[in-house]
Amino acid sequence: IGSLMYASIFGNVSAIIQRLYSGTARYHTQMLRVREFIRFHQIPNPLRQRLEEYFQHAWSYTNGIDMNAVLKGFPECLQADICLHLNRSLLQHCKPFRGATKGCLRALAMKFKTTHAPPGDTLVHAGDLLTALYFISRGSIEILRGDVVVAILGKNDIFGEPLNLYARPGKSNGDVRALTYCDLHKIHRDDLLEVLDMYPEFSDHFWSSLEITFNLRDTNMIPGSPGSTELEGGFSRQRKRKLSFRRRTDKDTEQPGEVSALGPGRAGAGPSSRGRPGGPWGESPSSGPSSPESSEDEGPGRSSSPLRLVPFSSPRPPGEPPGGEPLMEDCEKSSDTCNPLSGAFSGVSNIFSFWGDSRGRQYQELPRCPAPTPSLLNIPLSSPGRRPRGDVESRLDALQRQLNRLETRLSADMATVLQLLQRQMTLVPPAYSAVTTPGPGPTSTSPLLPVSPLPTLTLDSLSQVSQFMACEELPPGAPELPQEGPTRRLSLPGQLGALTSQPLHRHGSDPG
């Protein structure tokens, strides 16, 4: 009997000691992992102490058991019943959930998450997105703005933001810190809205009876308010094209079509300037034949640059190039080494500058006005007194259609001029006259002087055409309008007829 009692007592005591040691061994194993994590990542002392304290409290609170892992091991129907039991206190005593059906309560219970916070733990920081609604079931918390405590909340209090009033989550206007050990039930806004969409009859009752104890939403960050730039940057990543407008005076608003859609830094370009900076079609017209890549860069430059609305530039004389043409100036200075066709295309550029300027006046029909002061630039669209967005969009579309028509007509005119030049060069190729044979009589004449090349004649003739079109064909006081194609086609051969009437002889060394 004594040996039996000794064996039973010894066996029970050893089993008890073994169970104690097993729990202690698990605790030390998990604690060792936490300390190894702290050492590996070199976490500083204040945060390291918070980690160790939280682990110790969580171990004593749950005995080292992962409740979520245990809950996920059950089937979904059983999980709903378990969640309904775990959140029964909240669902029974909170006013917004009263009167809900059994199915609605089960769906809500599945969406709730339980959070346990030790003292000093910050649940929400200032500036964080308010993605959830919090219900306090135990403990107390404090809300701070800077170093000032603005509120202390306790059991059955609710904090967050009214989700039904805002389409997008706002930002917190303060820090939420736990004063004691707290148990909180939180539900994400997407989950709550999903359940309320499934039960629309409960939705009206819920929003009407929901009383948020403390609204954390920062009202200064609401979209459309003066301080909402940061919020707009976070939620409006896919922005449309940006529009900046110059201020319109009362006198300017009476004149229709007073602005032109141009790229940034293009205030001095012609009315047909689009795409790359520098001139019509993204580059100076005089350098068009020598740089074919300008047409390839036109599309990307047009689509990537934001639109700006600026006044037209001052008018340019008909014979003056659009500006920024070092290529043609070098050719004029060193005409001995340049291609003979460069002079002809220089005359073509003069005609283009004249036609572009006159067509700009035809479509816009307003006098040039000086540029406004820099303080009046970049007025935002949302400022008071601005035109409605639809009106601005319609004006932009009208300007775009005008620019497209202008570009089409300029292309047709350019093709006409090039065809005339090619026809003239085919009839009378460039050549130098040879020395004529002296006559049989004693009164022999001296050799004839060489005839100037055709490109120079073409430049003079085209300059005469531009001056003739600019000065004589337009009646005084009438708006400057571009001439039609047949009129220009008839004027060019008439001007060139006198020049080509002389018999030109080919030089023996000319390969053409």
Rank of each mutant, 00 (worst) to 15 (best):
P318T: 11
H185Q: 08
S358Y: 15
P479M: 11
P370L: 09
Q495M: 04
R368D: 09
G323T: 14
R308P: 10
P511D: 04
P476Q: 07
G174W: 03
K251P: 12
R239A: 11
P306R: 09
R387T: 05
L406Y: 04
G508Q: 12
G224M: 11
A167E: 11
S284H: 15
P482W: 12
T426D: 05
Q255E: 11
Y181G: 07
R145K: 13
L449W: 15
P374G: 09
V465E: 12
V176F: 02
H507E: 13
I187Q: 01
L462M: 09
D197C: 12
E254H: 15
F202V: 06
S273W: 15
A167D: 12
V348P: 14
E332L: 12
T253R: 11
S260H: 10
G270M: 11
F135T: 02
L129A: 06
R138Y: 09
Q502A: 12
T416M: 05
T229E: 10
S444V: 06
S225C: 08
F345W: 05
R409Y: 03
Q483S: 11
L341S: 11
S260W: 10
S353I: 03
T443K: 04
V451C: 06
M425Q: 05
P430G: 10
D191R: 02
V348D: 07
S411I: 08
P370G: 06
P326W: 11
V435D: 07
Q424G: 07
M425E: 07
D397L: 07
P280S: 09
G257S: 11
V428I: 11
E365K: 15
P292F: 15
C369F: 06
G170S: 07
R239L: 11
L327C: 07
K186N: 08
S303G: 07
S346T: 13
V259D: 10
I187R: 02
L179I: 08
L403G: 04
S203T: 08
S236Y: 12
N215G: 02
A132K: 10
R423T: 10
S509P: 09
P440Q: 09
S172I: 01
R409G: 08
D157W: 01
E365V: 07
S466D: 14
R237H: 07
P317Y: 05
A371C: 10
L454T: 07
A269N: 12
R386H: 11
V451S: 06
Y166I: 04
G299Y: 15
G154F: 04
Q467D: 14
F468E: 08
T253N: 14
E230W: 13
I136K: 01
L153G: 02
P200I: 01
R316L: 13
T458A: 09
V435K: 08
P384D: 05
D357A: 13
S286R: 09
Q424L: 04
G227W: 10
S349V: 03
K333N: 12
D460H: 06
T219V: 14
D413E: 05
P503E: 10
P453S: 10
S375W: 05
N350I: 02
P482M: 12
P479T: 04
R177K: 06
S286G: 13
T456N: 12
D250I: 15
K251Q: 10
I351P: 09
L399E: 03
L130C: 06
P429L: 09
G170H: 01
T426P: 10
A344D: 07
N404W: 12
T373R: 09
P372Q: 13
F468A: 07
A371Y: 11
L499G: 13
E194G: 11
S334K: 15
T131G: 09
L381S: 11
L418D: 03
I379M: 14
D397V: 10
S208F: 09
P271M: 12
P372N: 12
I212Q: 02
S375R: 09
V417L: 09
L163Q: 08
S463E: 10
S346E: 09
L462D: 13
G268T: 10
S284C: 15
S228C: 10
K171C: 12
A267G: 12
A371G: 10
L396H: 04
R308F: 05
S294E: 11
G439Q: 04
P388V: 06
D297I: 11
S236H: 10
N164I: 03
A498I: 07
D397G: 08
P429I: 06
T458P: 12
L396G: 06
S353L: 03
S382L: 08
G508P: 14
F202E: 14
G356N: 05
S342T: 12
P429A: 15
T131K: 09
R138W: 03
R266S: 14
T219K: 09
S272H: 13
G356C: 04
R189V: 09
L427F: 14
P503W: 15
T180Q: 05
P322V: 15
L499C: 12
W207V: 09
K333W: 13
E254C: 13
P438F: 08
E393T: 15
S466K: 08
A412E: 15
S446Y: 08
S346F: 09
M328C: 06
I379K: 15
G233Y: 11
R246G: 12
Q422G: 10
P438E: 10
L243M: 08
K155S: 09
N220T: 10
S444A: 13
Q483K: 05
Q402R: 03
P300T: 12
P280C: 01
P289K: 01
L499F: 09
G224Y: 10
L427D: 03
M221Q: 11
L376N: 06
P440C: 15
L474D: 13
